[in-house]
Nucleic acid binder design. Structure first.
Lengths: 128, 128
DNA sequence: TATACACTTGAAGAGTTTTGCAAGTGTTAG
DNA sequence: CTAACACTTGCAAAACTCTTCAAGTGTATA
């Protein structure tokens, strides 16, 4: 049996609340699912590169295709997935369709993860 | 007809008539790949919930299992994926193995995405 | 040492996703 | 109206991922 005498027991006693929900199982199942979908959409090298490219400015599909060297269909397909998660916004102008990051939150998230990924491995004292 | 301030509408066969900054990779390709892996690891509801749980404090596998009601194996498997992307850190103490978020960057990223996902749909002027 | 406990790992099956090509939609020019 | 251009979507094959169960590793205790 587990004896919690080892250390500060990680008991779920959260005495830092009076009228706010103290024991929220999660931040909200729906929000969690949306967040997971968002991460999953961004969790692909090709799509993440697309986001990174768009973070530098609005571009139309042809321009993106020219930049990455990929097929129009492939770009469009990826953009569709990104758009489904509201990561990018679409704007039509004449024959061209311009894409850009949906909002600054996306750019922020992008910056955060790229910064984290750019850093060398975090220091680990033991077992890694 | 397109309005006055047409952003150099690329109506010709060569749509690269823009005069914006150069478009090379701002982050290294390796960083991009790491970031994608990180997103992909977090892009699963079960794993994201794990991260959210751990953001509240360090826990051992049994405790997590008790909280989520999942099998030890399942938890361990997910934790492994999270650990492979350096999202969580492991610490052994006797028979127990404690997990926690790898660093504050992860907690930050988590907060950012959950905040974004918690918001209602962003207002869209047109095309949605 | 042997046993129980806590966790980890391997492997197979099910389910989901990515990809490439071809056909389809919307828009402007003639 | 027809043609060309820019992009989007459907479909089927291939690739990948998640879950589950059984067996394996490491640690503490009798």
């Amino acid at each position: 049996m587990i004896h919690d005498s080892d250390r500060s027991a990680p008991s779920e006693t959260t005495p830092h609340s009076h009228d706010h929900a103290p024991r929220r199982t999660t931040v909200g199942p729906a929000a969690l699912a949306r967040a997971a979908g968002l991460f999953r959409a961004a969790g692909d090298p090709a799509r993440l590169r697309l986001l990174e490219i768009l973070s530098q400015g609005e571009l139309c599909v042809s321009e993106v295709a020219a930049l990455t060297g990929d097929d129009l269909s492939a770009i469009s397909q990826r953009l569709r997935i990104l758009r489904a998660e509201h990561l990018v916004a679409r704007r039509r102008e004449g024959k061209h369709v311009f894409y850009a990051l949906a909002d600054s939150h996306v750019a922020d998230l992008l910056r955060a993860v790229l910064a984290h990924a750019s850093e060398p491995a975090a220091p680990h004292a033991d077992g890694d």
